[in-house]
């Protein structure tokens, strides 16, 4: 059982302000991306994690250099929280040569080895098997590194969830499985897709610790992840964390999410907004002032604008270069 107050006590004010900044950065990045999408500047699929930001932020607050991140289709937050450069992310959304994938991947495929981000993923559950290999590397490297594997409630019903958790538990791999249960797999409610109430309880099947937490609270996420980290770094094997959360938008930018009642959406927006709640918390704790928050907002607005300018000014990928890469 994670004692939250102990975990929170270990967090400096600076760390909490870092959390707030990252929460706002993810929110602003995606709000901007949605506007750009609607303006026809970017295309394809774009899956916002707005409403879920506390999970990547809380989790990445516990990582160290050398740790690995495995992300999914709803992965901008994981990348930003792990330290990815939002200029290169935005450029990738624009399909430009300066993007993380040189315009080959787009929103769902950002991979940034410098920050240990082994890739977002367009296949639901597709990243879960990779965690076993990254976990094996961490174990063989003997440097105390850990792999964080993010996925959703939908992926938890895929066969690889069982394969990978069983194998990781069997080999005592330093992997932390973080299920972001936002209650919907596209339109399918987890009530209709998950046979048990709590995905976190599936940990029992593998003999590993399971945590079921409020994914709107970055401190709570940090607490569970840091506890799982301690276990993993000490050779104690994997953990499963189910972070209950809610996405404020549809599955992607073209999904109006009519399968959810407005009452439900309003409930989560008004009570579980991680950005709003964390601002209030830090104000109440006098860790930051309203002016201080405004400064952060202004700074991040500029940063996002710079990223958009960088992306728009960047060259398109060279067609010749692309054709040259094709061997036969």
């Amino acid at each position: 059982m994670v004692v939250l107050s102990d975990k929170e006590a270990a967090l400096s004010d600076r760390k909490k302000i870092w959390m707030l900044e990252k929460l706002i950065e993810i929110r602003k990045f995606e709000e901007k991306a949605i506007l750009l999408y609607r303006a026809g500047k970017i295309w394809g699929y774009l899956h916002p994690c707005i409403g879920q930001e506390a999970i990547p932020v809380g989790a990445c607050c516990a990582i160290k250099k050398g740790d690995y991140i495995i992300s999914n289709h709803r992965g901008h937050g994981h990348c930003i929280a792990a330290g990815a450069d939002i200029r290169k992310m935005m450029a990738e959304l624009f399909g430009k040569s300066t993007g993380y994938c040189g315009g080959r991947g787009g929103s769902m495929h950002i991979i940034d080895m410098e920050h240990g981000i082994l890739g977002q993923n367009g296949i639901v559950g597709g990243g879960i098997p990779l965690s076993v290999g990254a976990g094996l590397s961490c174990k063989m490297d003997k440097k105390g590194s850990v792999t964080l594997c993010f996925f959703g409630d939908g992926a938890s019903n895929n066969g690889v969830f069982h394969e990978a958790l069983n194998m990781s538990a069997l080999f005592k791999l330093p992997v932390i499985y973080i299920c972001e249960n936002n209650m919907y797999a596209i339109s399918m409610s987890s009530k209709d897709s998950v046979a048990c109430v709590d995905i976190g309880k599936r940990s029992c099947a593998y003999g590993i610790p399971g945590h079921i937490i409020d994914g709107s609270n970055p401190i709570e996420v940090y607490g569970a992840v840091s506890e799982a980290m301690e276990l993993a770094r000490g050779g104690g094997g994997p953990s499963l964390i189910e972070a209950k959360t809610y996405r404020f938008y549809g599955h992607h930018t073209n999904d109006p999410a009519e399968y959810r009642s407005s009452k439900e959406v309003e409930y989560y927006k008004s009570t579980k907004d991680p950005v709003v709640n964390f601002k209030r918390k830090l104000l109440e704790e006098k860790i930051i002032t309203a002016g201080g928050i405004q400064e952060i907002e202004n700074k991040l607005d500029r940063k996002i604008e710079e990223a958009v300018t960088f992306a728009m000014d960047s060259p398109e990928p060279e067609l010749d270069e692309f054709l040259k890469e094709i061997k036969e």
Binding site: M113, A134, V160, M167
Partner: peptide, 28 residues
């Protein structure tokens, strides 16, 4: 057993594990 990793019957995860290890510095 560290370099001869005998796995359960789970082909997709065997392949995925190999990919994950290949991405992180090994040659499985």
């Amino acid at each position: 057993p560290e370099r001869v990793i005998n796995t359960p019957i789970a082909e997709n995860t065997i392949a995925g594990a190999a990919i994950g290890a290949a991405l992180t510095g090994y040659r499985p």
